[in-house]
């Protein structure tokens, strides 16, 4: 099956050095591709490149990002605007900062819809209810302010906003890192459940291989701007080839761990 998004030989240079170095990967509808790496690996920047949202320190970018046959880097500003949030949606790190603290939840979702769709008021209302139901939030949340919601609920709200225009690609940047482990599981199960029903591609950014195990189909491991290993999740987890991949897997403590020290 054809890829819905292809990143080909992406290199992004800042004044000091290449921050993304010849990175290539594909995203397919119905699949979760995990981009794994630690701080500074270039994983967030790779995601921002897809939406051409690179910060102003970037000097040069080469390579191609194809979405529906077009190169993202060749698109005009208005064309990009219509893709962002609509065809390609992103949930950024620190999700709480994406929510307006003085606006009720329902209005924030409506805004996300109204940015791209010409719906009547009652259509918007219906769509908001549908989205809250999809992320398993009670319709009463519509009247709540972000600070009145728990971390897990806020994350569901942001997911609802990201999914509001039925994107073909959803990018999630460390969506569960700030959440308790038990809430993390609920959110990951929710994401997989939604993807099972509506076919879209997910790019899931994380530094934690145990999260990768729970949610991914394919894995790309990034280190210092490069992809050091790529493959199906099961294979990479069972037989990591690159020492860095092995280190990322081994350094996580597990239940019943007899080790007195962790590697790394």
């Amino acid at each position: 099956m054809d890829a819905v998004l292809k990143v080909e030989n992406l290199t992004v240079t800042s004044a000091k050095r290449p921050v993304i170095d010849d990175v290539s990967f594909d995203l397919h509808s119905g699949e979760v591709t995990a981009l794994v790496g630690e701080s500074g690996s270039g994983k967030t920047l790779s995601a921002l490149s897809i939406l051409d949202l690179l910060p102003s320190g970037v000097i040069r970018k080469t390579g191609k990002i194809s979405f529906k046959g077009e190169n993202i880097f060749d698109l005009k500003a208005e064309e990009l605007e219509s893709i962002r949030g609509n065809d390609i949606a992103m949930v950024f790190q620190e999700p709480f900062t994406a929510l307006n603290p003085v606006m009720r939840a329902g209005i924030q979702i409506s805004e996300a819809i109204a940015a791209h769709k010409r719906y009547t008021d009652s259509e918007v209302k219906g769509r908001v209810e549908e989205l809250l139901d999809m992320v398993r939030l009670s319709s009463q949340v519509v009247r709540s302010y972000p600070h009145e919601l728990s971390g897990g609920m806020r994350q569901r709200l942001i997911l609802a906003m990201a999914l509001s225009c039925e994107p073909e690609v959803l990018i999630l940047d460390e969506p569960t890192t700030a959440l308790d482990v038990s809430i993390q599981k609920e959110i990951l199960d929710l994401i997989k459940g939604i993807q099972d029903n509506r076919r879209f591609a997910i790019l899931f950014i994380t530094h934690d291989f145990s999260v990768v195990n729970m949610v991914a189909d394919k894995v790309c491991v990034m280190k210092e701007g490069r992809i050091v290993e790529k493959g199906l999740k099961e294979e990479v987890l069972k037989n990591p080839k690159h020492p860095y991949t092995r280190k990322l897997i081994d350094c996580i403590p597990r239940l019943g761990d007899k080790r007195k020290r962790l590697p790394g």
Partner: peptide
Amino acid sequence: LDVSIQAGILNLLK
């Protein structure tokens, strides 16, 4: 902290 940094801090604490 990132997972490998976590490991370093946990080892240090021990």
